[in-house]
Design a protein around this nucleic acid. Structure first.
Lengths: 195, 195
DNA sequence: GTCTATAGCGAGATAGAC
DNA sequence: GTCTATCTCGCTATAGAC
């Protein structure tokens, strides 16, 4: 029989992380107090330290989990036929994944400077790995003559920035559905790489 | 005869703003203390309050000045012949302007959430005005049949995000000069709008 | 596992000497 | 115009009761 004495206790950890994610995204890591997080969860501030050694670790956990999810979902994408199909899959995946986790995306970009050097290096390595995946698609497409682009590395930076930018303006229930947005951005991406 | 008694005093205001700009960009508004700013300038914390009523006003001044500079330099761009030339001018202007003020750009984007509602609204209005300028170029080009793009508004968002992204990776003395980067991005922009 | 209480610190802002 | 000194507040993190 599974332990069940206090079911609410067993989900306090995830609830703390969820509250921290929301608050860090809205106000910024430095501006959020542990008391605020505790209040959001419905516990006292001291209780948080049963789940995290300190505030910095809480931030790092959120960012690390986010980047690990990103890389593992990317790896789970079905194999595409050629560079053009792979680029379309990447484009649609990037928009959907980032849109679904706008708080984590915002934190992973904005709070890098609040990480201690060692933690920063770990997150950066994962980010570079993600960029390298796209750069690989672009380089292969260029070699195969499918894409026409001057510099795969810069193109990867440019496309990722462009696609992530959807998060700054897209709102549920607006003029366009996310599927429609995907189509429009995919058309711009396809043209930008000369395909 | 101009007042000259204490020349260092006359430049304390600008030095405070410069120090705040640097520190806010590197550590974030909430993480920077007035004492830190004062130390950077070489005065005591209390002296800062001769130049700003409080910390929030200091942040708002920096952001407002930045946006005003952006809009006035944009307005000072020479008239371009057609939409294609106007788009190229905008592209190169955006990259150069933002690259030259990366601290202010970072703050203007990241610290929006630390502004009081009224201040936020003022900065947002200026940002929308800048976006509208690009959207106008794109809409005119689309109507004239020079550009082929599905949605001028989304294209404006996408291109601005893409161009601003240069700031996240470009470093002086790297593989490419800024002029070279401009050329590469301009080629991607031109293709993306189907010109 | 959560609470109350608090230690220890540093923050923003102000008062008054010079 | 700048300094020193200080008020008041809120913060992170910990101790110990339950």
């Amino acid at each position: 029989m599974a332990r069940k004495k206090n079911s609410s206790a067993e989900i306090t950890g995830p609830r703390i992380r969820a509250a921290a994610l929301r608050l860090f995204a809205r106000q910024g890591y430095a501006a959020v107090s542990m008391r605020q997080i505790a209040q959001e969860v419905g516990v006292q501030a001291g209780a948080l330290y049963l789940y995290t050694p300190d505030k910095q670790s809480l931030l790092f956990d959120l960012m690390q989990t986010h980047m690990q999810d990103l890389l593992s979902e990317l790896a789970a994408l079905p194999e595409a036929g050629g560079p053009l199909a792979a680029l379309e899959d990447f484009t649609r995946f990037h928009i959907r994944f980032h849109r679904a986790r706008s708080d984590a995306v915002f934190i992973a970009y904005m709070e890098l400077r609040n990480l201690e050097p060692e933690n920063f290096a770990r997150i950066e390595a994962m980010r570079r790995s993600y960029e390298a995946y796209l750069e690989g698609i672009l380089a292969r497409g260029k070699e195969a003559g499918v894409f026409s682009l001057p510099d795969p590395k810069l193109a990867a930076f440019a496309l990722i920035a462009m696609l992530t930018g959807v998060n700054t303006w897209y709102r549920e229930g607006g003029r366009l559905s996310l599927g429609h947005v995907e189509n429009i951005y995919w058309e711009m991406v396809r043209k930008a790489v000369g395909a």
